[in-house]
Design a binder for these strands. Structure first.
Lengths: 198, 198, 198, 198
DNA sequence: TATGAATGAGGCTTCATTCAT
DNA sequence: TATGAATGAAGCCTCATTCAT
């Protein structure tokens, strides 16, 4: 029925997420996805008309979950720094949880407009969410600040990807670091510096 | 002969840079590169044993140039903020200059260890260079700070890629913004904020 | 039940006729036929064991109708030329009426013996009917003459197919022409000709 | 070189002619053609961009040869009946010579405009050639007469296809019959007939 | 009888790479 | 060194047919 249909669709998306995530778009084969999902190749095409469409669906579901889970957490926090902490923790925590599938975010098909639209919509929504929060707290240039915060976090996402030894402790440390840097800037502690800024 | 060989090698790398850069690894064909370089397909294999190796060579040359040009500029600057300014300006300026070939940095082959090594070597060298500079100026956690600065800059690199209207003015503005944020953090201006941090 | 069965069978044959006729055997999909007939794909296989068998049934029904309708008309005519006129008119008129479905007669599956038998049976029965009539009227070589007459008519059938502007007037003209040519041959009107035949 | 290229192209066309001719378009596989030609599958695509294009090339070459060979023969003949005899003999003789490959003319891909154009160009050129000759000999309605003659011949082409026992004697007999019928019409020999036409 | 989700064999085509010249 | 015709493995996708409901 409808439920069964939904179930199989989830099964496919899960399988595709794992494979696209670990091998990227081009090196994941539709036949592999079918095998991973435990269904026949042809069945994939009952749910998605092409490999690109499946990839886009996987990506979109991932993005949607990311934002859906962030929203409530953000509202629960009060002060600016708490909110930044929530965002950093969610961002890094999320990608830590799917760290084996990070290639999903690096190897995407070219020239697929729907995918580009989906990615653009995500980054816009995410940036908008952060910018709105910053604005409420009186931060100017909220859009640029929001992007920058994301940039800081994304760099640590790279750490997660490329460093197999990355631990939950590292995670917590990076989270705190990112928030402090964003909030107060770096803190050089030399005479030269004081001299220069005076 | 040797000179001629070097010339042709440059011609190939230039052609490959343009095509990999605009179409990505998987959607660029060896035959297209040969055409673009004005040579025969087979000739490519006299210089590179595989498509992956050619891609890696293109990437490496690009990275090397980036760092080679940054070094002298950085030494010429004196104060911390000047150096940050130099880095930001170089980083964004460089990617602005090759903004039509940005796919080079997004669509790369998977599972190719040599390429991974090359990329890792670059990001390490770049981070090390910035971290060393920060350390000289008394910044603690220099490695994390260096990465974060790169992260902020990379986010604006995305702007350059996805926004065709991105101008040189935007470039200058982003540069200044990145340096100020990194140095002093964001500046909320509300009572709530003061209250919280007191 | 039996009536209902017959009804649904007719519905399927009608749908299949339209689609096979306009797209040919290979480019018509069983799913399209099911859609066109307003039934499920699986249901087709309750009535026909294969696509080939369905095609053969469609073809056979078309052939049978053609001959069934011709019989009475032919008996009603008296003189040789009247009968030829009836045949030509029926032949061209019939294909004019189904001119949108002519691919039924051009794109047929290969290597299907039952279909070949069906087609052979039709062309034999048609030829036999005409040949018998010709014989009654004292025409020698009746079998060859019958085939030739069919050949002349079939060429004009091609006109109907390939010329979208083919009109009912054209139809009437071709009919008369075919009968006259068959009956009296072409009529060159030059001295050379007379000389040669003398 | 050029000669070698031309040779291989001929080899491919020959192989494709045999297979398309005996199995039709849809049931001939590109891999079979490659095998038959003794080359690799991929090589086919150095010469033709698609299966449809190859089929069209095969068809066109066949048509061109048919007309090229007919031209000189036709000019060599003098009187009307001699010319008709030449045409009939060429038409039936040609298809007799390739009788094993007749499916080339029955199973063609749908909706391929270039192929349709090629076929239309052939039938037009052939009809025009016969019509021009008829006109020179004072035959009116030359276009319709030309088509009709082709129709009579084509019907016998069917005999050649469907009757494996068709012999060269049958061929000669059909040739003479077609010419006489076209020239003088059928010859009923009964009182009824005379009565009617008087 | 009727359904339609699922199957999986098989086709066309691409393209990195080779090798005889 | 340079060429480019030839190769053939491999992938995406189609669609006739089946079968559990």
């Amino acid at each position: 029925m409808s439920a069964a249909h939904g179930d199989k669709l989830e099964v496919i998306l899960d399988a595709a997420f794992r494979l696209f995530g670990s091998s990227g778009f081009y090196e994941t084969k539709m036949s592999e996805i079918a095998d991973e999902a435990g269904i026949a190749k042809g069945t994939l095409y009952l749910y998605f008309t092409s490999k690109e469409e499946l990839f886009t669906a996987v990506t979109k579901r991932d993005f949607d979950r990311f934002l859906e889970q962030l929203g409530p957490k953000l509202e629960a926090a009060g002060f600016l720094e708490d909110k930044l902490q929530v965002i950093a923790s969610h961002h890094l925590g999320y990608y830590y949880s799917v760290r084996d599938y990070t290639r999903l975010f690096f190897h995407t098909p070219n020239r697929d407009q729907k995918l580009m639209d989906t990615m653009y919509a995500f980054i816009s929504a995410y940036t908008r969410m952060i910018a709105a929060m910053l604005e409420e707290h009186g931060v100017t240039d909220s859009w640029l600040h929001a992007k920058s915060f994301i940039g800081i976090l994304d760099v640590f996402k790279m750490d997660i990807l490329f460093n197999p030894a990355f631990s939950e402790q590292d995670l917590a440390q990076r989270t705190g670091f990112a928030v402090r840097l964003f909030r107060y800037g770096c803190k050089p502690d030399t005479a030269e510096n004081r001299e220069h800024t005076s």
